[in-house]
Nucleic acid binder design. Structure first.
Lengths: 106, 106
DNA sequence: ACTCAATTTCGAAAATTATGGAAATAGTGT
DNA sequence: ACACTATTTCCATAATTTTCGAAATTGAGT
């Protein structure tokens, strides 16, 4: 993973609304969630939500799939895993940070 | 870790210059690096660097320690580990993403 | 073609961030 | 106190991000 891409993903997650949005999608699991359903949970105008969602999609952290008129959104786990891997690599490049990663695994 | 704090840390890392800066500090290891040395590696004005550095310190990703006139900066591994743990927890809350975390461990 | 529902794009205002030169500060030695 | 170096703060400007109402679009059904 290139630094530029990692930075873009980190920036995408580095906004409380978007991080919350991402959390909601993670918790929705493989079924995903329609944009409208997410809007109900976040209670923000649809155009604002659409912009945030686009950011997450553009950076590869969320995928979308059409089902009739609704758009199903899903957290893109491989994308997140790549990011976590990048951070862990950066972090572990010189020091031992296995404990925390181990905790995440458990 | 609270969502707000995680978002602040992610935002701090979500800027190419700051991510690069953090990388440099990680690679410097436990000895840390003086602000001036970092400046030499990044080649940006000192005031700009100081602003970015402050962001990383404020969010708990970097620590500083005075040594005579120079300020030694160090990557704060526990801070990063907590962030990685948070992301992993969010990610793993509903799906299995052990493979990537395992990879980070290896 | 028309209508309805879901979602995005447009356009514009407010807020925040990024950048860096110049001045101020802090620390050490003389 | 003075000089010197390292770093930060002050200040302003440019750029980007956030926000959201209104209009446009997309897709399905009639």
């Amino acid at each position: 993973m290139k630094l530029e891409k990692a930075a873009a993903q980190l920036e995408a997650l580095g906004n409380p609304t978007r991080l919350q949005l991402y959390r909601i999608l993670v918790r929705a699991g493989d079924d995903g969630l329609a944009v409208g359903s997410v809007q109900g949970k976040l209670d923000i105008p649809s155009s604002t939500l659409s912009h945030h969602l686009k950011r997450l999609v553009d950076t590869g952290l969320v995928t979308q799939e059409r089902q009739a008129t609704t758009l199903i959104c899903r957290a893109n786990y491989p994308g997140m895993n790549a990011l976590i891997g990048y951070l862990a690599d950066e972090c572990c490049a010189d020091a031992t940070c296995a404990p925390a990663v181990g905790k995440a695994l458990a």
